[in-house]
Design a binder for these strands. Structure first.
Lengths: 133, 133
DNA sequence: ATCAACCTTACCACCATGGCAAGGTCAAGC
DNA sequence: GCTTGACCTTGCCATGGTGGTAAGGTTGAT
């Protein structure tokens, strides 16, 4: 299978497949005489694995660990679970941070009459250099 | 006030102050004879304004609009409110996306016994190339 | 033989930020 | 006046993942 087909089959762009190879996340596949990369089923599975990990928000560094755990048939599931829990923690922090932003903005937006007049609590809050907020 | 003091006073690093100037987000301040940037109170307020906007997750492009609204004493508060609401919407989308990731992972982690055994529903889900998920 | 669709590598760009380097400036202490 | 240290200047590199683009080679079908 050439890289374009592998990209279609895995949902990972050809560009990214080459990138993953360049950073050592996936193995370099065999090449045809003319230099074309050639992929097999297992490689597609790996790409799908990586794509799903990325879709769940794992970083490349974490994917590196996850793929090695995946390859390691004698891994301890505790290791995987630990990584997953750490990532859940990170996600929760990011959610809380975004939620706090949204809450603040919602409060401000509610106080803004939103008409043609120029006075605006949102801008006031941004500009506050006294203890207003 | 020199840039270091402006950085301390505003919470925006000197590096970022120069960057904001380079992209035209803030005006270039007057320079001393030897080339040092010199800031006044109003410049600090602007930097604080920008910092608060960034802390609420607005993009640089949005900050550009917000600062121009701030400067425009005859703005309509509706314009500010519209921008804020659009950003709240974006934040909500990002939150929902992260929440979906976290929920999926939580479900998988709950199913993983997390001990020394190698079988792991998390990896299984990542690897699924049939309709398992 | 030609043409389109593919492949290859090697760059540039993003966005906001930090770091580092090489050199100029200023103020305080001697 | 000289040294020293803290500051300032510009400029370049790196991040992380991804897309784009360019210049050229390969393949397969007509």
């Amino acid at each position: 299978m050439k890289i374009g087909e592998a990209a279609d089959a895995s949902g990972v762009s050809a560009k990214m497949i080459r990138y993953y190879e360049s950073i050592g996340l996936i193995d370099a596949p065999p090449r045809s005489a003319s230099g074309y990369r050639h992929y097999r089923e297992d490689d597609i599975h790996m790409l799908l694995f990586i794509r799903r990990g990325r879709e769940l928000g794992f970083s490349m560094a974490q994917l590196r660990t996850l793929t090695s755990l995946w390859r390691d048939k004698s891994r301890a599931s505790a290791d995987v679970k630990r990584l997953a829990n750490a990532h859940i923690e990170t996600l929760n922090e990011r959610i809380a941070s975004l939620q706090a932003m949204a809450d603040t903005l919602k409060t401000l937006a509610r106080q803004c009459h939103g008409d043609a007049r120029p006075d605006c609590p949102i801008l006031d809050a941004f500009a506050a250099h006294n203890g207003q907020k």
